[in-house]
Amino acid sequence: MSTAMTADSFTRLTRRQLAWCAAQAIPDGSYVNLGIGVPTLCANVMPADREIVLHSENGVLGFGPAPAAGAEDCDLINASKEYITMRPGGAFFMHTDAFVMIRGGHIDLALLGAFEVSGTGDLANWTTGDRRFPPGVGGAMDLAVGAKAIWVLTEHTTKKGEPKIVDTCKYPLTAAGVVRKIFTDLAEIDVSPDGLVVRAMVEGLTQEALQAMTQPPIRLADDCRVMAAPAG
């Protein structure tokens, strides 16, 4: 095991870079919900050559990046309560309709944050059970049952350095077996019926080092790429 601090040989992506990597993987023409946390950052780094319609649970379809300083509108925010802008073709609607879109199977893809993801795609992202930190489910459970696909965007490890991709989630589940893809600050990983497959990882990271930070077994795709994003 070469876990002995290979930490110096690779650099973790920033949250914005992580969002950029996920955004570049979204298919052209998709309707995509962005959840709280890293996912809402994707709106600022979407590929310019694709028409992708972003959905927010609070009644917005077709939104764009954050406004320029001074142009914020307090009536126009995303799920993370950050200011956004509208793109041509965008629309507003009430909450019930936002969840008709979500629960009714009209959303192609939802990008969510996570406390933990299991090797079989179980998702835990609403409570740690610690009374000092009240739980918050928001639209996560609705998205988990309603969106056609779920990708998770998260740091690879906790602040204490423990794996967030685990054999079995210790926190209560949001939904079982729903996550198809995981983007972390170290790697892009598919949750396949045969286990976790690494599609890309940051430069200088080895399979052994990534495995040491990941509980379930991982294997590298034959065409495993270097995961890189513009600086920032």
Partner: peptide, 17 residues
Amino acid sequence: AAGEIELELVPQGTLSE
């Protein structure tokens, strides 16, 4: 945290529906 308020947590879409 002090147990002074009762919380019923409801998924957002279930809440509005």
